[in-house]
């Protein structure tokens, strides 16, 4: 039966220390160096390159989003301005056309008034003339009647 005492085993046993210990230590140290060059360095490089790539891509994307948002705001402003301008133009045009209409109306009314006035004045003067003529003819006739009556006597 193998003795189970620490360091006490001469042949076998659970606590049988021998050259396995230093050799295993050397093996693990060698394994550390091998894994460092085969595993940790290359995988680390790839992972860190990817992390860098992801970070720069994300920063770029953020920059682009900011740019897009800025442009969007600018465009919206421009659009608003253009809309306001258009409204102003429409309003102006409406006002212009109204003004023109009013002017034309006023002109037409005044022309009509003027011609009516002129016509009335003409009618008045012709009537006056006709009255005068009638009056003078009546006077002449009266004179004639009076002369003839006087001559018969």
């Amino acid at each position: 039966m193998p003795t189970l005492f620490l360091f006490g085993a001469s042949e076998g046993g659970l606590f049988d220390f021998d050259a396995t210990l230093p050799l295993m230590a050397v093996q693990v140290v060698v394994l550390t160096f091998i894994l460092n060059s085969l595993f940790f360095k290359p995988v680390g490089r790839v992972v860190e390159e990817r992390e860098d790539y992801v970070n720069t891509s994300r920063a770029e994307a953020k920059k682009k989003i900011a740019e897009v948002e800025r442009l969007e705001i600018e465009l919206k402003d421009q659009l608003k301005e253009a809309r306001l301008e258009a409204q102003k133009v429409i309003l102006e045009a409406e006002q212009d056309s109204e003004n023109l209409y009013k002017e034309a109306l006023a002109l037409a009314t005044s022309e009509a008034n003027a011609s009516r006035e002129k016509a009335r004045r003409e009618i008045d003067s012709q009537r006056d003339e006709a009255l005068n003529q009638l009056k003078s003819e009546a006077d002449n006739l009266g004179d004639l009647i009076v002369e003839r009556l006087l001559a018969k006597k």
């Binding site: 659970l14 606590f15 049988d16 220390f17 021998d18 396995t20 210990l21 230093p22 295993m24 230590a25 693990v28 140290v29």
Partner: peptide, 15 residues
């Protein structure tokens, strides 16, 4: 398992 041998585990612990 190599880790069931006390030499291995002591080697690792001393490292």
């Amino acid at each position: 398992a190599p880790t069931a041998d006390i030499n291995t585990t002591v080697a690792l612990a001393l490292l």
